[in-house]
Design a protein around this nucleic acid. Structure first.
Length: 553
RNA sequence: UGGCCUAUAGUAUAAUGGUAGUACGACAGAUUUUGGUUCUGUUCGUCUUGGUUCGAAUCCAGGUAGGCCAACCA
């Protein structure tokens, strides 16, 4: 048990807290706002929060931060739960900040009664103006001098719906000259006559983030409240409120959010892509959402592995999406069923093959020593990939060319004898001969060939549609780029091949299973598939060192 | 030009005053019935200037660079 992996800074804090007896056990929480679908950045936070609890024998609550009824919907709640489940984590309690609205209201009254909160009638512009700037202290207005009774009365009336949206707010009375803008009498309650996805029309005032999050943490006895860097300035207020209310002292810790190359990681931008139909939905396979990646065929284990590999720190980062793809391939290589599928067929007639057909046995996964096998029909007319033949081959090309030999995966070695062309000079067919003694697994020919090609028997081929995805944006750092982020959308991020030619075994579909189309990449069944029309999504390509070689020359 | 956070290889992330390591990438090679996988090797780094110390990526001070903060969003 030599756990050599070093601790991240949060684990260090936790181990110290446990050692010092500050906490007997830890309680974390994952606090999404149900106003969009979860993305890979959330996965980092989920793996952190749930992972910590798992590691230190603690617990994790799922708590929806639903304090803004205008943007929040039940559809999002459902998708979030599905995504966390799929990632493989179990929450101890499912809570909602809205569960605490009564309690939060009481907290506000306590603050008012302590003279630490007041009702302000100013407009949002006035409040902003009075707040000052980082270099100029803010000033308090006359409303801040209202006495406690009046504040209680006014706040009660706010709750009772006596005022319209924006007419009044409740502010904490902290420090208008603090260098921390969040301490300059922050708004803690605002009026919103809006229907809430859980509390319906019960409330027309809603607490702000700062007056809901920390208090919810405290109510649940969260020991380590982990959030992203941009909340650092909120920590002072978080602590101040907990102290004034004299409630359980949860503590906030911040880590750097995930940024990834060639994509965006903000719910606002993702929502825009969805609403403006740049993608088909939140679960479009090109989206960095968890549901998009799931639909694309990324495995949950791969996502977890990725989150583990990128680490936790406080430094701004931009992770190469190639690392995610590495994790995805690593998982799929071990688990995907191999199948042969030809995308751009080139017909080959094997002139000396005179049987009707011959079934050859091919392993489903060569990585698995106990792999099952399937039977694949071989016959006189087969298809190979157009790109696997060149009339004038470059150096180091070890696929088919006139006079050259290749092995057909799981079958025989063939030699190209003749190139058949149409009137315009297009290659329409190859005439080849096979070496009967070169059969896979029983090769007595003594001949070694460099290349092995995938192939499909023409008479037995079944069909499917294939979707090939490329990066959604064509620049690395979308967030830093000039202008509107949508100007950098890759117009060729989706390529559809309507008819590919596959070996019959592809019809034995298992929706759960992932596939590797030999030499083409990893694929999975898309949810839009029907019995009549199978649609496969390309999860990720195989590493292609030959393509790199070609590029170099 | 107020406050706060951060700075280690191309990208991430370790080293917690004592040999700068790991992963991905890149490059080279071996193996291979997937130009996949696997294996081996190579390349490349402590932002800067001082200070403390026998010894500094680490501690201190100044500088520089990047990020965050002035929503009735979270």
């Amino acid at each position: 048990m030599s756990e050599e992996k070093s601790l991240n800074f949060i684990e260090e804090i936790i181990e110290k807290d446990l050692q010092d007896g500050k906490h007997e056990t830890i309680l974390t929480r994952f606090p999404p706002e149900p106003n969009g679908y979860l993305h890979i950045g959330h996965a980092k936070s989920i793996c952190l929060n749930f992972g910590l609890a798992l590691k230190y024998n603690g617990k994790t609550n799922l708590r929806f931060d639903d304090t803004n009824p205008v943007t929040e919907e039940t559809e999002y709640v459902e998708s979030i739960k599905e995504d966390i489940n799929w990632l493989g984590f179990k929450w101890t309690n499912e809570f909602y900040a809205s569960d605490y609205f009564d309690k939060l209201y009481e907290f506000a009254i306590i603050l008012i009664k302590k003279g630490l909160a007041y009702v302000d009638d100013s407009s949002s512009e006035e409040i902003a103006q009075q707040k000052g700037t980082p270099t100029i202290p803010g000033i308090r207005n006359r409303f801040s001098e209202r006495d406690i009774e009046e504040n209680v009365k006014l706040f009660t009336e706010m709750k009772d719906g006596k005022y319209v949206d924006g007419e009044k707010v409740l502010r904490a009375k902290v420090d208008m000259s603090s260098p921390n803008m969040h301490m300059r009498d922050p708004i803690i309650y605002r009026i919103k006559h809006a229907h809430h996805h859980r509390t319906g029309n019960k409330w027309c005032i809603y607490p702000m983030y700062d007056f809901a999050h920390g208090q919810s943490d405290s109510i649940e006895n969260i020991t380590h409240s982990i959030c992203t860097l941009e909340f650092i300035p909120h920590r002072e207020l978080y602590n101040w409120l907990i102290q004034q209310l004299a409630i359980f002292p949860s503590q906030q810790y911040e880590f750097a959010r995930l940024n990834m190359t060639y994509t965006v990681m903000s719910k606002r931008k993702l929502l825009q892509l969805v609403n403006e139909k740049h993608v088909v939905g939140w679960d479009d396979p090109r989206m960095p959402t968890i549901s998009g990646m799931r639909r694309r065929g990324y495995g949950a284990a791969a996502l977890r592995d990725f989150c583990d590999k990128i680490g936790i720190a406080k430094r701004e980062n931009l992770i190469d999406i190639g690392l995610l793809e590495f994790c995805v391939r690593e998982e799929l290589n071990k688990t995907a069923l191999r199948r042969m599928v030809v995308f751009n067929p080139l017909k080959i007639t094997i002139t000396n093959f005179n049987k009707e057909e011959e079934m050859v046995s091919i392993e489903d996964n060569p990585e698995d020593p106990n792999s099952t096998h399937r039977m694949v029909p071989f016959s006189k007319e087969i298809y190979i990939e157009q790109e696997d033949f060149m009339e004038i081959p470059p150096k180091k090309f070890f696929r088919l060319y006139p006079g050259g030999r290749v092995r057909l995966k799981g079958a025989y070695i063939i030699e190209c004898n003749e190139v058949v062309k149409d009137n315009e000079g297009n290659i329409t067919e190859l005439q080849c001969s096979y070496l009967p003694e070169s059969k896979s697994g029983n090769d007595t020919s003594g001949i070694h060939v460099k290349g092995t090609l995938h192939w499909v028997s023409k008479a037995h081929a079944v069909h499917a549609e294939v979707k090939l995805f490329d990066r959604l944006f064509h620049i690395e750092n979308v967030a830093e780029a000039e202008g509107d982020f949508k100007d950098h959308i890759n117009p060729n991020s989706l390529q559809i091949i309507e008819k590919v030619y596959a070996e019959p075994a592809l019809l034995d579909i298992d929706i759960q299973k992932k596939y590797q189309f030999l030499r083409k990449g990893y694929f999975c069944i898309d949810k839009d598939s029907t019995k009549e029309k199978l649609i496969f999504n390309r999860t990720v390509t195989l590493k292609d060192t030959w393509a790199k070689e070609v590029k170099k020359n």
